[in-house]
Design a protein around this nucleic acid. Structure first.
Lengths: 232, 232
DNA sequence: GTAAAAATAAGACTCAGTTCTATATAAAAT
DNA sequence: ATTTTATATAGAACTGAGTCTTATTTTTAC
């Protein structure tokens, strides 16, 4: 029942409202301002996401058909594919919101820090956000881990992070071509680092201090590995 | 006709023989030692890979069906799926060989260098290998670039690189738990860096000096970004 | 209340991938 | 050389994802 609560809460706030109304909380915009049609759409999408999550947890991703999800949500298969472009998409309903959050968090530090500093602080803020929502992440992780076909799709989604990082680093290197390459390389390295950290955190059951892990790991990049035990 | 030659040559040496006979060149083992049955299997696999490549280049990956590939190769659809687990697999027939090559190249430097040094030198050797085979890589890239669904699959294959890197770095940290984390983070960063470098190289039409690009980029990791323009 | 717009249901369709069976052909045994 | 055994292949039936079209229902606007 914790899961049920989680999915209802998270998907509502973080994903469904997002599409049309942007990033806001229940305080900044009342549900009552939304038309009946919109409310029904939210309900439908929610029903599909909930049904899918339950079935995926019960029987696994591969063993669940789109028909079953639609049936459980009391909607048609057509409607399922209207709301989610693919069966895989329903596993990651909050991807878009997370990406925009990351962008915003980095933007918050842009004024007071260098490009890399803003990226680093934004990522650490994101780490804190992840820790707050470790329960959701654990559920999603459980579904993804149980399905090989979902694992690279997860990677695919995470890859968008690199674009956001590169985007911010590149903003500081307009008209400087040499720096552009350097920015892209650093974005790649930062992204690879983050993936490794996240993997480690997940594998430990999301129990560690992700902010500290992230900070420590990024210090490797800042200081370089020239003096370490892996020196060439 | 360069393409045709490429596919015949590469797939034969790098992939088909690989499965049963391991990594060798035409000098180390004559084709005549191989039984008729094996030769036919090679021919079938080759015919399928060739037919697929041609059709993918002509009509794109998504617009080519497994039936068409089989028909062009004068084999049945069943046979196609016997040789290639998925339609996507036929696009990357040399993946296994490249991975083993990387392992070997890193291993060559293990004796004379620290773990990171061996990884770095192995990767630069690999860069040289890539430059030698830029024509094949360009063709493959063209097919992959034209198909969104193949792009993340490529990422998926490349991901194996990180495992190889991590594997070698970890070998040096047995019994040292703190270093294990550090090794994984570094592997992630190196891998992310390499992906960024390769992407840049591909996007420039494989014309740049990949070895130099790789070396320069890895120096960022060695020296750190603390003193650069992206300092925090 | 009515007309326009949008959401949904239903079903036909394509194609990837699996499974099974029958047949052809190569390898091994005698 | 002939038989036996192993395996490559063809073919066909099947499942399920995703697309597309059409008809029906629901919401909104007037």
């Amino acid at each position: 029942m914790t899961f049920k609560l989680f999915y209802t809460t998270i998907t509502m706030h973080a994903n469904v409202f997002w599409e049309k109304y942007g990033f806001f909380t229940e305080r900044s915009k009342s549900i009552m301002e939304i038309s009946l049609r919109e409310r029904k759409k939210i309900k439908s999408r929610q029903a599909l996401a909930d049904a899918a999550s339950q079935l995926f947890l019960e029987k696994g991703f591969e063993n669940t058909t789109a028909d079953e999800i639609a049936e459980k949500a009391e909607l048609s298969r057509s409607t399922f594919f209207r709301y989610f472009k693919t069966k895989e998409a329903v596993v990651f309903p909050q991807q878009q919101e997370r990406m925009e959050r990351l962008r915003e968090l980095i933007r918050n530090h842009e004024k007071d820090h260098t490009p890399f500093g803003a990226v680093k602080l934004g990522l650490l803020d994101m780490a804190a956000y992840f820790m707050e929502h470790r329960d959701e992440l654990t559920v999603q992780r459980r579904i993804v881990q149980a399905s090989p076909s979902l694992q690279y799709r997860q990677v695919d989604f995470d890859r968008e992070w690199e674009d956001v990082i590169a985007e911010h680093l590149l903003a500081a290197t307009r008209f400087k071509r040499a720096d552009e390459h350097r920015a892209r390389y650093i974005a790649g390295a930062v992204f690879g680092l983050i993936e490794a950290v996240l993997r480690g955190w997940f594998d430990e059951g999301c129990q560690g201090d992700l902010v500290k892990m992230g900070g420590d790991s990024m210090d490797i990049l800042v200081e370089g590995i020239g003096g370490g035990e892996f020196d060439r």
